[in-house]
Design a protein around this nucleic acid. Structure first.
Lengths: 230, 230
DNA sequence: ACCTGAACACCGTTCAAGT
DNA sequence: ACCTGAACACCGTTCAAGT
């Protein structure tokens, strides 16, 4: 497959044979995100990112000042993946879509969950996102106090659901059943009858999918805010 | 102060002059919790815990099998600090008190927030807690599907609020004002008018306290569940 | 101008040894 | 039986050096 003729010439000015593109901040951040998506936050080491870029660990420090600066940049990419809510537009559908987009972004980038709201130097996508959410709510008649209520309630729920879902030690029902066995095994039988019934009669039943709970709770919250607004 | 006569003799059988109590699992876990409360999860190293106990790092491994096993034990202590909800008793007040207790426990042990729901081998206090919550809801007439809805909504919100509150880079209003300056500084003036107005006209006003948002959202959720129940 | 290698002060954990 | 010390394979980051 080497030596294809007609390859695009967009990088024609680089030396033939020189596989190495110049390192840029963007390439470092993208490599870091790919690595964290695959290996988690604790798998995200400078040394590993450097290796995937075929570079010495120290080369990264020309483009980022330290690990936390890299994480700042990664988080702003995640915010950039969430469509900006329309400033005009019915608030309930806008907030509903925004919640689903944020949930999906956090599902793609589980390492980001605890970090989205903790940036001391939020990036442009982060600020733009929050500006649009607030703008939409204000336009729909929320006063400042209600904006604050709605924001803390929605984001608390969205991040918290993502957190509990992510930290669930299990993905498939088969795994869950195995874990449920192990879970009760060290304890006397029927020591926790309500929990046992809940697990066997509901959670382990075919068709139950924890992920679907998200929209139920979201609608309870949106309906509650609507009622508070009027 | 050495040589007090009349000291309690409860440890009288230990050698005089030997300051060292025997290491136990409980002492290791308690020292680890104290350390994590003060220094956070990333400050919780085997070597530091060992130093506070005046012991070589390796001595810990006689009582715990590895760092994750230590964390399992720490989490069950946190669950044990939350009063068990009464199995009989009006569900709304029981769930409200349980939410506030859990919030308070997470405020004392911020390192625990992402870990409470991720134990593969939950301890006795953990299982007992969940059993009592489910028992209360079942007794109040929740069917299994509604238990699942209520649980994921409440815990999502409780853990998520704790997470966003903890990760807020700031505690005092003065700090927040300084950070708000820095936050907008790299960007053109009035690039984010809605966000700027929200911050200056509401969040930075005297009397605003983000922590108080918790109960507002909690009541929206509890009222919504009550409505869904009937 | 851009990248590298050696080094420093850390980690969790294994293993063989001390009392 | 209980604890220790040296060692291994890792970290992030500094510093001086290479091209």
């Amino acid at each position: 497959m080497a030596d294809r003729k007609g390859d695009e010439m967009s990088e024609a000015s680089t030396n033939a044979g020189t596989r190495r593109r110049p390192l840029t901040r963007e390439r470092v951040v993208q490599a870091a995100i790919a690595h964290a998506d695959a290996a988690g936050l604790e798998g995200l080491t400078m040394r590993h990112v450097a290796k995937t870029l075929n570079v010495a660990p120290m080369a990264l420090y020309r483009h980022i000042s330290h690990r936390d600066d890299l994480i700042d940049a990664m988080i702003d990419i995640v915010f950039g993946e969430i469509p900006v809510p329309p400033v005009q537009g019915e608030w309930k559908t806008a907030m509903r879509e925004r919640a689903l987009s944020l949930r999906d972004a956090l599902a793609r980038h589980r390492w980001a969950i605890g970090l989205m709201e903790s940036r001391r130097r939020p990036g442009a996508a982060n600020l733009r996102h929050h500006d649009a959410v607030i703008g939409n709510l204000r336009g729909a008649g929320f006063d400042m106090a209600m904006v604050a209520h709605a924001y803390s309630l929605l984001d608390g729920y969205i991040y918290g659901f993502a957190l509990t879902k992510m930290s669930m030690p299990i993905d498939t029902p088969a795994e869950f059943e195995a874990m449920a066995q192990d879970m009760f095994e060290p304890f006397p039988a029927n020591e926790y009858p309500n929990l046992a019934a809940f697990v066997t009669d509901h959670v382990l039943q075919p068709g139950y999918d924890f992920a679907e709970e998200f929209e139920y709770g979201l609608d309870v919250i949106l309906d509650g805010l609507e009622r508070a607004l009027s």
